[in-house]
């Protein structure tokens, strides 16, 4: 089954991105597909490579990047939400790209399920 995932909150302040990540990883482990994760609202802040969390903490954006690289996940950051929050191509972590809201709608149309994680 194909799952689309929508992440609406940034890293660390809310658990949303952690829960979404663990859901995505588990879905893949169980043989499902997660072709795309869409980051909206403050969720766009998951995409920056400039974050440097302490060594003993998880690195939320790097974790997404690694999962994307291993499993070919398309990490899409909403352009309008990103521009409002100072996220652009210069700061993106590997595997993330900036595109339009149409990419979110497409997940709803094309995939079997769309699961939202937010506040």
């Amino acid at each position: 089954m194909q799952f689309g995932i929508l992440v609406n909150e940034g890293p660390y302040t809310h658990q949303a991105s952690d829960t979404a990540y663990l859901f995505a990883r588990t879905a893949i482990e169980k043989g499902h597909k997660v072709p795309r994760v869409f980051f909206y609202h403050d969720g766009v802040n998951n995409s920056t490579r400039l974050a440097t969390p302490p060594q003993d903490d998880r690195n939320v954006s790097a974790r997404w990047s690694n999962l994307a690289e291993e499993h070919g996940i398309d990490l899409v950051v909403c352009v309008a939400a990103a521009q409002r929050r100072g996220i652009n191509d210069d700061v993106l972590a590997p595997g993330f790209r900036i595109s339009g809201l149409g990419q979110l709608v497409e997940m709803g149309i094309q995939y079997d399920r769309l699961v939202t994680f937010g506040d």
Binding site: Y40, H41, A80, L101, G102, L104, V105, G108, I109
Partner: peptide, 15 residues
Amino acid sequence: LEGLEVVLITAAFDQ
């Protein structure tokens, strides 16, 4: 506000 932006885009996909 940002929710409304998604609604407007979805309409363009004839859903």
